[in-house]
Each structure stands twice: as structure tokens, then as C-alpha cells.
Design a protein around this nucleic acid. Structure first.
Length: 520
RNA sequence: GGGCGCGUAGCUCAAUUGGCAGAGCAUUCGACUCUUAAUCGACAGGUUGUAGGUUCGAUUCCUACCGCGCCCA
């Protein structure tokens, strides 16, 4: 491309011309009196006559998103904070030099404007410019104004452009922030304190997942990025923090998918002297309040292929059933008679259920060597998960898949654990915490035998955690809640990448051709 | 990892059976002192993801690779 034709170089040249007009090319600050949002909320109801009479003088800033020039006058639209505000620039009003500056502006540039509010002939609230201040140049052209940026890969790789061009995307991340604020406010109001526990673990515990490995040079040891903060938070409960929570990232070395990103954000909280039923109730209240705080209503729009729907997080709308009840309730007709409770009692009868399910329905992976409880949990996922659109509490889990949960007093193979589902996703997981150190040791040992059997997600032994429990963990209930997934549900987003600002992508290859942004 | 689909100008998209690679917006130049997808006129913009193959001729057909998306494990 010839030098004169390169947009980047053309705009650098304009920047020099702007300097020649006496404007700084990269000024340090600009004092504005109003944000675009403030002007719109305060003056959008005022008539033109009222504005003329009041002569409201303002200084505003923003990124130029549209320019319409007509000889010796013109309009620009400034965008700031997701809002747009029109500015009228007339040569007679701003003077010769400012009008020269106006002609050197490009879509994407940042400017400051001082002037007064008025209404145009077509009625749009606008700023009548008295002066223009150049603030920063956009050297690379923004995407086209009608369609914006739609290329999925570019939207994620260049999220900064996505955020400039797509107000809906901006709104999703504003809502995500409101969600986190809501959860913090709810927990703080109930006497919880927020803590930060290590992100690098010598033993990756607290969940069933493969970790990422890293290395510390001075100590010359491998460390794992945490898969969950759980074991550290319970150590704090041993230490006397009766109500703690942490909102932070977890890392799991697994595939990417519409519900999975290798790093994701979890809320975990622990409440001493509470069991899983109290945690369940608190969680439902937190989620209901979060829906209200984010959307102003408990009803969240949730678009499915078979037509617009909504998910209602109002407490009255929640369903509750045990895992076994859910398998029975959602058992497909094609798989024959519904299971009986007794079918879950033996390894053989559970295996028979899987065979019946697989003969009639899509294939579910089954390994007869795995523990019965693990098969039941897998069967639940295969049978029921796709039906759980409205918020549903599934409780009573097999002990085999719950190495950190307390047993049911009447059924030792089952534990006091629940998960919350909505939008066909697991969004939360909570239980009565196992606080008997000797039982905990047996559970870890059982997990180790599972690891030897070939399950490389099985939990590892953590001697210090058992030592902590040996000092006495009070009866405690705890919860983990997926912030990303709850954000999806509250923003009608159907892939986790739309609620993570910078989702994991394969790194861009270094460009072999001329660089997009040539350096001088 | 497997299956399907996609990759063309900065952006959004066309291109007949395999026959001269196009449009809109953005950019550049010109006109225009109330426009809002501003309008009007003119110019420019391409190694069609990469590397091979078939063919007189490939954006189009074939192979491999790279990247992305969707579904599945």
C-alpha cells in the first residue's frame, strides 16, 4: 500500500496538522462539567425554549462516532459511557482555528467540547459548540457504522473495539459488575467478611478437576493454579472466621465450551453453625436479590430456539427435588418404566438403569468399574440436566462424588449436598461440610484409590487440611456459585465467552506481512 | 480428539457450470451553515487464509496445513 493511502499514516499526518493549529496531540487532562448520561437524564425532557432561556453551559467529552459535515457547519455524535450526545459545530460560533480542527477530526477521535445546550430543528438535544479541544487520535479505523463488528473472533480478540461498537456488549459487563456488587452487599449485610486465599497451591484441592501447573524458581517447586479456594476457606473457619467469602478466579485445565472457560470466577462462602439446608435458603435469597439488583425484576429473559422464554428467580418459582427423584421424574418414556428408589441401591441395578437408558436414548458413558455413586451422578446429568431451565435445587448427592461433604445420618452412602441448576447449567454447589478428620482421611484415601484406578480428576491427599480439621471445624455449611454462568442467565447470554471480557483464545500468530500498526 | 460449516478490500457482504474480483459503509479529493444510515460528484483501495494439485484458465474443484464457529466425546 502506498504511503499516502495508509489510513494509519494519513491520520498520523493529521495529528501533526492538529499540533500545527496549536492543539496538543496528547493532552493530559480535560475538565468536563457533565457526562453524556448526566446531560441526557437532566435535560432530555426540557423543551428548546426552556433550554434557550436557561442557557445551560456545559463542557463534555467523548469519542466521535459519526461526523456529518456541510460546508461551514456540521454535526458530530460523541459517545461516552455508552451514551451518545450530538454536537453542532458552526464556523461562525467556534472560529476559524477550531473549524480547521473540526475538519481534521476522524471517527474514533476523542474530543472535549464547550458550549451550550439547545434543540435542533428536528428536536434532538445537542451541544452548540463554542470551542473544541482535541484529546486523542484514533489512528486505526473503527468498523463500519451499520453492522458494527460482528466477526466473533475479532469481537473477542479486540474486545476494546467490540465495547466501542456494541452497546449491548457493554451492558452485559455493566450487569456483571452489578451482580458482583449485589452478592457482596448481601453477604456483607449478613456479617460475612471477604478474604483472599492463595491462587497457587502445592496441592490442588477442593474440587474434582485437572489443574494447571507452574513452577516457582527460588523454592524450585511445582505449584498448581487453584481449582477451588474451598480448603483454605474452611481452614479460616477453623481459625474462627465464622462467616467468610471469596470472589475470585479458579483455573481448571479442561476443554472450552459454551459453559466452560479454563479460568472462571466463583463465589465461595462458608457459614459456621449452618447446615446445607440453611445454605440452600441463603443461596436462593442471594440469587433472587441479584436478579432484582441486576435487572430490576426477578424475571430474566432467556431466549431458547423454541421461542422467547424467561427464567424467574423469584423464590416461589424454585423447584426442589433429590437427585434420585429427578432421575425418576425426567426418565424418558422410551427407556421404559420409571426407576424405583430401590433401583439406586445396588451396583447391578444402577448398571441396569444405565443400560435401559442407553438403549433408548443418546449414549451415556458408563464404566462398570467406577463407584455406583459416580454412575448415579452421571445418570442424573444425562437424564435431567437438559430439562432444568427454571431454577431448581437438586439435593442429596452420592458420597462417592462428594469427598468433602457430610453424610446423611440415615443413609451413609449419600451426603447433605445440593446443586442449583438453571438454563440447563449447574450454577451453584453447596453442602454440609465434612468436619470429622478421620472420616475425611478415609474419603481422601478412597479418592486416591480412584486415582490409581485411572480417574485423574480424583482428589489428592491433603495432610494439612486433615490437621486443620483435627483442631476442630465447627458444624459448617458452604457454597460455590459460578459468577460467569449466573451472569449468562441474567443477560440472556448463551456462551460463557460473552460474559468474560477476554476469554481464552489461541494466541494470534505473528503477522508475516506488514504490521497493522507500523512503528516509525 | 471426531463430525459439519466458514475464511474475498479496514468493516459488512456479493461473484451464474470453472471464464475480466464487485457493492455499501469507512478512507482520499471537491460542493454544501440544522444533519442524524445526511446528500451530490470524483478517485483510490485485492498475492480471494497459507502451500501444493487438477485445468487452456481456480474465489469456485481436490489434498494438506493455519485460524474461527457450531455440534459431539
Amino acid at each position: 500500500m502506498a504511503f499516502e493511502e495508509n489510513v494509519y499514516d494519513l491520520r498520523r499526518d493529521k495529528l501533526k496538522q492538529i499540533e500545527a493549529l496549536g492543539q496538543e496531540s496528547y493532552p493530559r487532562r480535560y475538565d468536563f462539567t457533565h457526562t453524556a448520561a448526566q446531560i441526557i437524564s437532566e435535560y432530555s425532557l426540557k423543551t428548546g425554549e426552556e433550554l434557550d432561556a436557561a442557557r445551560v453551559v456545559v463542557r463534555v467529552v467523548g469519542r466521535i462516532m459519526a461526523i456529518r459535515q456541510m460546508g461551514k457547519a456540521g454535526f458530530v455524535h460523541l459517545q461516552q459511557g455508552g451514551q451518545r450526545l450530538q454536537v453542532y459545530v458552526k464556523k461562525d460560533a467556534v472560529g476559524e482555528k477550531n473549524f480547521e480542527l473540526y475538519k481534521l477530526l476522524d471517527i474514533g477521535d476523542h474530543i472535549g467540547v464547550d458550549g451550550y445546550l439547545f434543540r435542533t430543528r428536528t428536536g434532538e438535544l445537542s451541544v452548540h459548540a463554542d470551542g473544541l479541544t482535541f484529546l486523542a487520535k484514533d489512528l486505526l479505523p473503527l468498523p463500519e457504522k451499520w453492522h458494527g463488528l460482528t466477526d466473533v473472533e475479532l469481537r473477542y480478540r479486540q474486545r476494546y473495539v467490540d465495547l466501542v461498537m456494541n452497546p449491548d456488549v457493554r451492558e452485559v459487563f455493566v450487569k456483571r459488575s452489578k451482580l458482583v456488587q449485589s452478592l457482596r452487599r448481601s453477604l456483607d449485610g449478613r456479617g460475612f467478611i471477604e478474604v483472599e486465599t492463595p491462587m497457587m497451591h502445592a496441592i490442588a484441592g477442593g474440587a474434582v478437576a485437572r489443574p494447571f501447573v507452574t513452577h516457582h524458581n527460588t523454592l524450585d517447586i511445582d505449584l498448581f493454579l487453584r481449582i477451588a479456594p474451598e480448603l483454605y476457606l474452611k481452614r479460616l473457619t477453623v481459625g474462627g472466621f465464622d462467616r467468610v467469602y471469596e470472589i475470585n478466579r479458579n483455573f481448571r485445565n479442561e476443554g472450552l465450551g459454551w459453559r466452560w472457560n479454563p479460568e472462571f470466577t466463583m463465589l465461595e462462602f462458608y457459614q459456621a453453625y449452618a447446615d446445607y439446608r440453611e445454605v440452600m435458603q441463603l443461596t436462593m435469597e442471594l440469587v433472587e436479590q441479584a436478579a432484582l439488583d441486576v435487572n430490576g425484576t426477578t424475571k430474566a429473559k432467556w431466549t431458547l430456539p423454541d421461542g422467547d422464554q424467561e427464567i424467574n428467580f423469584a423464590l416461589a418459582n424454585w423447584r426442589r427435588m433429590t437427585m434420585r427423584e429427578a432421575i425418576i421424574h425426567f426418565w424418558p418414556e422410551a427407556a421404559g418404566a420409571k426407576p424405583e428408589m430401590s433401583d439406586f441401591a445396588s451396583h447391578e441395578s444402577v448398571g441396569a438403569l444405565v443400560k435401559r437408558f442407553n438403549s433408548a436414548h443418546s449414549h451415556m458413558a458408563y464404566n462398570p468399574a467406577e463407584p455406583t455413586g459416580k454412575t448415579i451422578a452421571n445418570l442424573f446429568e444425562a437424564v435431567a440436566e437438559e430439562h432444568l431451565v427454571q431454577p431448581t435445587v437438586i439435593y442429596e448427592f452420592p458420597a462417592a462424588v462428594s469427598p468433602l461433604s457430610k453424610n446423611k445420618p440415615d443413609e451413609p452412602d449419600w451426603v447433605e449436598r445440593f446443586e442449583i441448576f438453571a438454563g440447563k447449567m449447574e450454577i451453584a454447589n453447596g453442602f454440609s461440610e465434612l468436619n470429622d478428620p478421620e472420616e475425611q482421611r478415609r474419603r481422601f484415601e478412597h479418592q486416591i484409590s480412584e486415582r490409581e484406578r485411572g480417574d485423574d480428576e480424583a482428589h489428592q491427599m491433603d495432610e494439612d487440611y486433615i490437621r486443620a480439621l483435627s483442631y476442630g471445624l465447627p458444624p459448617t455449611g458452604g457454597l460455590g456459585l459460578g459468577i460467569d454462568r449466573l451472569t449468562m442467565l441474567l443477560t440472556d447470554s448463551h456462551t460463557i465467552r460473552d460474559v468474560i471480557l477476554f476469554p481464552l483464545l489461541r494466541p494470534e500468530k505473528p503477522q508475516s506481512k506488514e504490521p497493522q500498526t507500523p512503528h516509525s
